[in-house]
Write a protein that binds this DNA or RNA. Structure first.
Lengths: 336, 336
DNA sequence: CTGAAAGCGCTTACAG
DNA sequence: CTGAAAGCGCTTACAG
């Protein structure tokens, strides 16, 4: 069933049918509009989007790009919450959602040109991976959690520095004097490196010395069956009373390792996370953490992108989602 | 940049370029193939997929359909694990992934016809929602976790009946004699109703009476701040020593409610879940549950669908992923 | 207000 | 082995 079939059934031309479908009502008489809409309704005709995209060079498709991760695409609860936020807005605004997890930007160009994708949301990609950005010139892009000095595109981030500053400061205020920072591999600049900066400055402002090799532990992946992995953590923790972990998921796994090795939390060691994922209030002890509204982050990213697409507006400002401390049960007050 | 530009640059016609792009090598001399590929490489030309989809009436897009849920699209860890499995296969086979969460099937038809989607994976939809299936005749569809007698399409499910039978039987074997079943709203037939059947038959085979209104509790949604919700759970649990919960996520929330109300698990009450989501080994106590390989389920769904698309094969058999009991810390042995 | 015609960028018989 | 031509289903100036 094509636009021509409808035209024949009504007794008009495809031009006229196209005009009513596209709401160009000034060009068509009310009588014709009614007839055409009636037939469309009766037949259940749906226009072919490929044909339309071909001629308009625009598809109403929004591409969402995730980094390929070890544990797999959506296994990261942070990613799935972001996607929840994005999907909600995209579907409300009647766009389509195409998803791809990529290793390199080449894969993304393909997607872009292939389908005349109208815009992209790009998640958590490391700055130095960014290619010459000129290639994007024509397609609106919104980044999420990407730090990159030369980034010419809007980024939706969080108060990473401020949040981790507050996390460390809270530990300090609770009487901890020897605290450490644990994270996944640290790229520079990145969400994690900004959080580390916040951690360092909190120490500095309280006059506590910082020594990277003693106070920072990078972990690729927690493997519960790997003694070496556990040992690195146990070793790191030995002379400390509190730990800032750069992400809740990692914090929760570290708590598991510690508990499995006889540590009691927070009595033996205090832990504070970051993100406030859904999980963090379900674990034991409930995780004290830094909250950010992840779904809202997805919402904003999608809204800004659609703004850029529809208003041809490329000067949307960067946005930082606020963070705040959520006190639960994983940090203990130390008597000084 | 179009196929015509490439043709001009090489000094051939679009027909020839199209043939080398599509691998019709018998129709082109090696010399020409080389020249065309060289220019394509140099220019970074990527064919327009919309044009191709328009003429071939096929897009290499696979649509994945999720039910709209209260908590939001990807907030359900079960859904995100399925998607992880699907995405892996789809991207390995060089298909594209379009995602939509829907309320009704109408939305799905749109997607299908709009983009000439090659096939669908449809998740967790309730049988009675299914429309007259003839509409699908032309498009391969794979269902996941859909029970429907007249389902003419392949379904990838799990051993829901067997799994819950084993869960209940395990509780019984551990000496529990008064046990209940808690789930979200029960549709018939559905994953949950099949699990309930397994629960009932386990009781029956041990000669224990079953009374629906006393032994089954349906909950729409856990609201931690709603006293009425907590009270229903506390009430239900009062005269029981063990509970089978139809899904880990729900089991974990119920444990929270019980713990908040002074229950100690498993000492005061034993809980067993279903699904073995990632979370279940991170909560306290670690949840005893029925394992199913959710990612594998996604993999299989995508593989079967692509088989159907490429082999024009509609006779793929239904598949049931096996389940098995995973004993952790949320069930206590009772002395009789 | 309506229609004829060209064109979006491909693919595919068909002729040579 | 190569090319001319038609067509996929739309939209969009343009003429009337």
């Amino acid at each position: 069933m094509t636009i021509r079939d409808i035209a024949n059934a009504v007794g008009v031309t495809p031009t006229t049918v196209s005009n009513v479908i596209n709401g160009n009502y000034k060009k068509v008489s009310q009588k014709t509009i009614d007839k055409v809409q009636k037939v469309i309704k009766e037949t259940g005709y749906i226009p072919n989007k490929n044909a339309r995209a071909l001629v308009k060079n625009s598809s109403k498709i929004i591409g969402v790009i995730f980094p390929k991760t070890i544990e797999g695409f959506m296994q990261n609860p942070f990613h799935s919450q972001i996607l929840t936020g994005i999907e909600k807005v995209i579907s409300a605004k009647e766009y389509y959602l195409m998803i791809k997890s990529i290793d390199t930007y080449e894969d993304m160009y393909q997607l872009m040109q292939n389908w005349s994708v109208d815009g992209f949301v790009i998640l958590s990609l490391i700055g130095y991976q960014l290619p010459k950005l000129e290639k994007f010139k024509d397609v609106p892009v919104v980044f999420i959690d990407t730090y990159y000095e030369e980034l010419k595109y809007i980024n939706i981030g969080s108060e990473d520095y401020e949040g981790e500053y507050n996390a460390a400061d809270y530990l300090l205020e609770m009487g901890h004097e020897s605290i450490g920072f644990i994270s996944y591999h640290i790229d520079y600049p990145s969400v994690i490196s900004m959080r580390l900066n916040g951690f360092k400055d909190a120490l500095k402002n309280k006059g506590i010395p910082f020594n990277h090799s003693n106070d920072v532990l990078e972990i690729e992946e927690i493997n519960f069956d790997d003694a070496e992995c556990s040992n690195r953590i146990l070793d790191f923790v030995k002379n400390k009373t509190g730990i800032c972990v750069s992400a809740d998921i990692l914090a929760i796994e570290i708590m598991e390792v510690l508990k499995d090795n006889g540590y009691s939390i927070p009595d033996d060691i205090s832990i504070i996370g970051f993100d406030n994922v859904y999980l963090s209030k379900l674990v034991n002890p409930k995780l004290t953490t830094i909250n950010q509204d992840i779904i809202e982050k997805g919402n904003i990213a999608a809204e800004k992108l659609i703004n850029m697409i529809e208003k041809k507006n490329n000067k949307e400002p960067n946005i930082k989602i606020p963070t705040n401390l959520v006190i639960r049960d994983s940090v203990k007050k130390i008597n000084q």
